[in-house]
Amino acid sequence: MIRLVIVDDQALVREGLALILGGQPDIEVVAELADGEALLRSDVDADVILLDLYLPGLDGVGVLRARSFAAKVLVLTAVGSAADVQRALAAGADGFVLKDATGAELAAAVRGAHAGVRPLSASAAELLWPRTAAPAGADLGALTARERDVLRLLGQGRSNREIARALGLAERTVKTHVSNLLAKLAVESRTQAALLAQGLKD
Protein backbone atom coordinates (compact mmCIF):
# COMPACT_ATOMS: atom_id res chain seq x y z
CA MET A 1 0.00 0.00 0.00
CA ILE A 2 1.36 3.45 -0.98
CA ARG A 3 0.91 5.97 1.84
CA LEU A 4 0.16 9.38 0.30
CA VAL A 5 0.14 12.90 1.75
CA ILE A 6 -1.62 15.66 -0.21
CA VAL A 7 -0.43 19.26 0.23
CA ASP A 8 -2.55 21.96 -1.43
CA ASP A 9 -3.86 25.28 -0.13
CA GLN A 10 -7.30 24.79 -1.69
CA ALA A 11 -9.58 22.59 0.43
CA LEU A 12 -11.72 21.57 -2.53
CA VAL A 13 -8.67 20.42 -4.48
CA ARG A 14 -7.34 18.47 -1.49
CA GLU A 15 -10.69 16.76 -1.00
CA GLY A 16 -11.03 15.96 -4.70
CA LEU A 17 -7.54 14.50 -4.92
CA ALA A 18 -8.12 12.48 -1.76
CA LEU A 19 -11.35 11.11 -3.17
CA ILE A 20 -9.77 10.15 -6.51
CA LEU A 21 -6.49 8.76 -5.24
CA GLY A 22 -7.77 7.32 -1.99
CA GLY A 23 -10.19 5.25 -4.04
CA GLN A 24 -7.31 3.35 -5.65
CA PRO A 25 -6.80 -0.14 -4.22
CA ASP A 26 -3.08 0.41 -3.63
CA ILE A 27 -3.07 4.05 -2.40
CA GLU A 28 -3.99 5.26 1.09
CA VAL A 29 -4.27 9.02 1.78
CA VAL A 30 -2.80 9.40 5.27
CA ALA A 31 -2.89 13.22 5.56
CA GLU A 32 -4.18 16.35 3.83
CA LEU A 33 -2.23 19.55 4.56
CA ALA A 34 -2.77 23.17 3.51
CA ASP A 35 0.79 24.55 3.29
CA GLY A 36 4.46 23.74 3.12
CA GLU A 37 5.23 24.70 6.70
CA ALA A 38 2.63 22.22 7.94
CA LEU A 39 4.32 19.51 5.89
CA LEU A 40 7.78 20.27 7.29
CA ARG A 41 6.35 20.25 10.84
CA SER A 42 4.45 17.03 10.23
CA ASP A 43 5.69 13.66 11.39
CA VAL A 44 3.31 11.75 9.12
CA ASP A 45 4.89 8.58 7.76
CA ALA A 46 4.40 8.68 3.98
CA ASP A 47 5.78 7.03 0.87
CA VAL A 48 4.76 9.78 -1.58
CA ILE A 49 3.86 13.45 -1.11
CA LEU A 50 1.68 15.17 -3.71
CA LEU A 51 2.86 18.77 -3.35
CA ASP A 52 1.30 21.86 -4.92
CA LEU A 53 3.99 24.03 -6.52
CA TYR A 54 2.36 27.36 -5.63
CA LEU A 55 1.63 27.52 -1.92
CA PRO A 56 1.25 30.56 0.33
CA GLY A 57 4.40 31.24 2.33
CA LEU A 58 6.88 28.48 1.61
CA ASP A 59 6.21 27.26 -1.94
CA GLY A 60 6.79 23.79 -3.34
CA VAL A 61 10.37 24.47 -4.40
CA GLY A 62 11.12 25.88 -0.94
CA VAL A 63 9.73 22.72 0.64
CA LEU A 64 11.86 20.57 -1.65
CA ARG A 65 14.99 22.47 -0.72
CA ALA A 66 14.22 22.31 3.00
CA ARG A 67 12.94 18.74 3.17
CA SER A 68 14.43 16.27 5.57
CA PHE A 69 12.00 13.42 4.87
CA ALA A 70 12.62 10.36 2.74
CA ALA A 71 9.26 10.29 0.96
CA LYS A 72 9.14 10.77 -2.80
CA VAL A 73 7.71 14.15 -3.81
CA LEU A 74 5.39 14.50 -6.80
CA VAL A 75 4.87 18.19 -7.64
CA LEU A 76 1.44 19.34 -8.82
CA THR A 77 0.29 22.64 -10.31
CA ALA A 78 -2.64 24.01 -12.30
CA VAL A 79 -0.69 26.17 -14.73
CA GLY A 80 2.95 25.45 -15.39
CA SER A 81 5.79 26.33 -17.72
CA ALA A 82 8.94 24.56 -18.80
CA ALA A 83 10.81 26.71 -16.27
CA ASP A 84 8.47 25.51 -13.49
CA VAL A 85 9.11 21.88 -14.37
CA GLN A 86 12.87 22.39 -14.58
CA ARG A 87 12.93 24.38 -11.31
CA ALA A 88 11.03 21.69 -9.44
CA LEU A 89 13.10 18.83 -10.84
CA ALA A 90 16.34 20.70 -10.10
CA ALA A 91 15.17 21.17 -6.48
CA GLY A 92 14.72 17.43 -6.12
CA ALA A 93 11.15 16.68 -7.22
CA ASP A 94 10.56 13.01 -8.03
CA GLY A 95 7.95 13.83 -10.68
CA PHE A 96 5.75 16.64 -12.01
CA VAL A 97 2.05 16.60 -12.85
CA LEU A 98 -0.29 19.29 -14.13
CA LYS A 99 -3.81 19.45 -12.72
CA ASP A 100 -5.29 18.77 -16.17
CA ALA A 101 -4.17 15.15 -15.73
CA THR A 102 -6.86 12.49 -15.49
CA GLY A 103 -7.41 10.50 -12.32
CA ALA A 104 -5.75 7.52 -13.99
CA GLU A 105 -2.70 9.64 -14.91
CA LEU A 106 -2.43 10.97 -11.35
CA ALA A 107 -2.62 7.49 -9.88
CA ALA A 108 -0.02 6.24 -12.37
CA ALA A 109 2.24 9.18 -11.47
CA VAL A 110 1.97 8.39 -7.74
CA ARG A 111 2.85 4.77 -8.46
CA GLY A 112 5.70 5.84 -10.73
CA ALA A 113 7.18 8.20 -8.14
CA HIS A 114 6.93 5.47 -5.52
CA ALA A 115 8.75 3.07 -7.84
CA GLY A 116 11.49 5.62 -8.60
CA VAL A 117 10.46 6.25 -12.22
CA ARG A 118 10.29 10.09 -11.93
CA PRO A 119 7.03 10.50 -13.84
CA LEU A 120 5.86 13.54 -15.79
CA SER A 121 2.26 13.88 -16.90
CA ALA A 122 1.79 14.12 -20.67
CA SER A 123 1.14 17.86 -20.48
CA ALA A 124 4.20 18.46 -18.28
CA ALA A 125 6.37 16.45 -20.66
CA GLU A 126 4.93 18.45 -23.55
CA LEU A 127 6.19 21.64 -21.87
CA LEU A 128 9.74 20.27 -21.84
CA TRP A 129 9.66 18.50 -25.18
CA PRO A 130 7.00 19.89 -27.53
CA ARG A 131 5.93 17.42 -30.22
CA THR A 132 7.31 19.78 -32.84
CA ALA A 133 10.71 19.34 -31.18
CA ALA A 134 10.66 15.55 -31.04
CA PRO A 135 14.04 14.03 -31.91
CA ALA A 136 14.53 13.82 -35.67
CA GLY A 137 15.68 10.21 -35.37
CA ALA A 138 12.59 9.03 -33.50
CA ASP A 139 10.86 6.31 -35.51
CA LEU A 140 8.00 4.47 -33.82
CA GLY A 141 7.74 2.22 -36.87
CA ALA A 142 11.17 0.78 -36.12
CA LEU A 143 9.97 -0.79 -32.87
CA THR A 144 9.11 -4.45 -32.59
CA ALA A 145 5.64 -5.43 -31.35
CA ARG A 146 7.05 -6.23 -27.91
CA GLU A 147 8.95 -2.92 -27.73
CA ARG A 148 5.72 -1.12 -28.57
CA ASP A 149 4.00 -2.94 -25.70
CA VAL A 150 6.78 -1.86 -23.35
CA LEU A 151 6.60 1.73 -24.61
CA ARG A 152 2.83 1.91 -24.00
CA LEU A 153 3.38 0.87 -20.40
CA LEU A 154 6.26 3.34 -20.02
CA GLY A 155 3.79 6.01 -21.09
CA GLN A 156 1.62 5.01 -18.13
CA GLY A 157 4.48 5.61 -15.69
CA ARG A 158 5.06 1.90 -15.03
CA SER A 159 8.34 0.67 -13.55
CA ASN A 160 10.35 -2.14 -15.16
CA ARG A 161 9.04 -4.55 -12.53
CA GLU A 162 5.42 -3.57 -13.23
CA ILE A 163 5.96 -3.87 -17.00
CA ALA A 164 7.53 -7.29 -16.53
CA ARG A 165 4.55 -8.41 -14.48
CA ALA A 166 2.03 -7.02 -16.97
CA LEU A 167 3.70 -8.64 -19.98
CA GLY A 168 4.80 -11.87 -18.33
CA LEU A 169 8.49 -11.15 -18.90
CA ALA A 170 11.62 -11.24 -16.78
CA GLU A 171 12.61 -7.81 -15.44
CA ARG A 172 16.02 -8.19 -17.10
CA THR A 173 14.26 -8.71 -20.45
CA VAL A 174 12.24 -5.53 -19.94
CA LYS A 175 15.46 -3.58 -19.22
CA THR A 176 16.84 -4.83 -22.53
CA HIS A 177 13.68 -3.79 -24.40
CA VAL A 178 13.80 -0.33 -22.79
CA SER A 179 17.45 0.16 -23.79
CA ASN A 180 16.68 -0.94 -27.34
CA LEU A 181 13.65 1.29 -27.78
CA LEU A 182 15.49 4.33 -26.36
CA ALA A 183 18.19 3.79 -28.98
CA LYS A 184 15.68 3.33 -31.80
CA LEU A 185 13.72 6.42 -30.77
CA ALA A 186 16.92 8.50 -30.42
CA VAL A 187 15.95 9.69 -26.93
CA GLU A 188 17.99 9.73 -23.74
CA SER A 189 15.39 9.01 -21.07
CA ARG A 190 12.30 6.98 -20.23
CA THR A 191 10.37 10.23 -19.82
CA GLN A 192 11.08 11.37 -23.36
CA ALA A 193 10.11 7.93 -24.64
CA ALA A 194 6.88 8.09 -22.64
CA LEU A 195 5.95 11.33 -24.40
CA LEU A 196 6.48 9.67 -27.77
CA ALA A 197 4.22 6.81 -26.62
CA GLN A 198 1.29 9.12 -27.41
CA GLY A 199 2.04 8.54 -31.08
CA LEU A 200 1.44 4.79 -30.86
CA LYS A 201 -1.58 3.32 -32.63
CA ASP A 202 -3.48 0.43 -31.08
Rank of each mutant, 00 (worst) to 15 (best):
L182T: 12
R87I: 08
A108C: 06
G57Y: 00
R111V: 03
L169V: 08
D8M: 09
D26C: 07
V97W: 03
S42T: 03
S68I: 00
D35Q: 05
E188Y: 09
A70S: 10
A107R: 02
G60S: 10
D9N: 09
R3T: 10
A115F: 04
A170C: 06
A125C: 08
R165E: 13
Q192T: 02
G155K: 09
Q10T: 11
S189R: 14
V29Q: 09
Q24D: 14
L55Q: 10
A104F: 00
A170V: 10
E37P: 02
G80T: 14
L76F: 15
A66W: 00
R111P: 00
E188L: 13
A91I: 10
L4A: 10
A101M: 06
L17D: 13
P56R: 04
G92I: 01
L181R: 12
M1Y: 02
D43E: 13
L51C: 07
P25G: 06
G60E: 09
R161T: 02
A78P: 00
R14G: 04
A164N: 11
R190G: 01
G60C: 11
A125N: 05
T191W: 05
A66H: 01
A183R: 15
D9H: 05
V44H: 04
R131K: 12
R14Y: 07
E188P: 11
M1V: 02
K201T: 09
Q192F: 00
A164W: 14
N180P: 12
R131C: 03
G141A: 05
L195T: 13
R14W: 12
D43L: 08
G23H: 08
K99W: 09
A31C: 05
R65H: 10
E162W: 01
G36T: 01
D47C: 08
L21Q: 14
E37T: 01
V75M: 15
L169G: 05
L151Y: 05
D35H: 05
V29S: 10
